[in-house]
């Protein structure tokens, strides 16, 4: 041992005093029995939440106009997903940064999602034997960029309505768009859009819900369901649970930052908060080496309570 001065926050005089009997196996067994009883009691008392998943089918039944509006935003590129940037697409200036660090952009497009093609055109192309849809898709495919822009401009001016199981649009010179939108809505209502987005039209098996979840999250309906359960980001949503259950309460510090300025108003909130939490985590892990922080226990003297029998001697 070097002749360093004794630092009470780092060094100890190892214990050579009295010992008392300690049955570690018995302690472990008692702990397991007590915790088992506690957990079984909590399970019987409170059960656990299980709200059914939201589907595009349900969405297009509950709020077909919101569905159709969102579907159009996927087609014309104004949806959240279409303008998301990396890792889904290359939309410029869409991603968050921490100062000069554009980590999100630098990682590139690793999970390519092209909403117009993936959410609208490809699913419709899987519907066989429907001449109107085939013709509309063909018209879209053969049209020029300026034609599409013109159609989308006209379509954007009208408000779709829904009655008698179908989407209705005022007469509008929007090329194939009305057919595409009402067909996609019908497809969603039939339940086949959920399946079609899942495999991306390429696979039989799929465990990847990236596309249907992004599509769902682009609309207002899905967020509305969550807001009703106090699950939104500005409602400390990450740590909340459906129903009245406790959720991930241990995320309190992470969710806390989203509620207060400057984060609550920042475009870069996610980046900044993740950066901050990483710094705080590193501080927590390296407490033993941080002067000042590591002195808190000695200065607060809470330990006098813990070891009060020892100090009483």
């Amino acid at each position: 041992m070097s002749k360093k001065s004794f630092n009470p926050d780092v060094d100890v005089i190892e214990w050579t005093g009295t010992q008392r009997p300690y049955d570690i196996i018995k302690e472990g067994t008692i702990a397991l029995v007590v915790m088992s009883l506690l957990v079984v009691m909590l399970s019987v008392l409170f059960s656990s939440p299980d709200d059914r998943p939201a589907t595009l089918r349900q969405w297009s039944h509950s709020d077909p106009v919101d569905f159709a509006t969102t579907a159009f935003s996927e087609l014309n590129g104004s949806s959240g997903t279409a303008g998301y940037g990396q890792p889904y697409n290359n939309t410029p200036n869409a991603t968050q940064t921490i100062g000069p660090l554009a980590l999100q952009r630098w990682m590139g497009v690793r999970i390519p999602v092209h909403p117009a093609a993936d959410f609208v055109l490809a699913p419709l192309a899987t519907l066989p034997d429907n001449p109107a849809i085939v013709a509309a898709l063909q018209q879209w495919k053969l049209s020029s960029e300026s034609e599409r822009t013109m159609w989308m401009g006209y379509y954007a001016k009208v408000t779709p309505s829904f009655s008698n199981g179908a989407l209705h649009l005022p007469d509008v010179n929007a090329g194939p768009i009305p057919v595409l939108m009402s067909s996609l809505t019908a497809m969603a209502r039939a339940g086949s859009l959920d399946q079609s987005l899942l495999g991306g039209g390429r696979n039989y098996y799929s465990t990847d819900y990236t596309r249907p979840l992004l599509f769902l999250a682009d609309g207002n309906w899905f967020g509305g369901l969550a807001a009703k359960q106090h699950l939104s980001g500005d409602q400390w949503g990450m740590m909340n649970e459906t129903g009245s259950y406790p959720g991930q309460a241990w995320l309190w510090l992470y969710t806390f930052w989203y509620q207060v300025p400057p984060f609550s108003t920042s475009e870069n909130a996610d980046s900044l908060i993740w950066g901050l939490m990483m710094v705080l985590t590193v501080i927590m892990i390296f407490v033993p080496f941080i002067p000042g922080v590591r002195s808190i226990p000695r200065r607060t003297k809470v330990y006098r309570l813990i070891w009060r029998n020892h100090y009483r001697k």
């Binding site: 399970s43 409170f46 059960s47 656990s48 299980d50 709200d51 009703k228 129903g243 009245s244």
Partner: peptide, 15 residues
């Protein structure tokens, strides 16, 4: 829809 196996104390209502 709430789940089918409720606890004795029902927490499946808006919090």
């Amino acid at each position: 829809q709430p789940s089918h196996l409720a606890g004795i104390v029902n927490l499946d209502h808006p919090g």
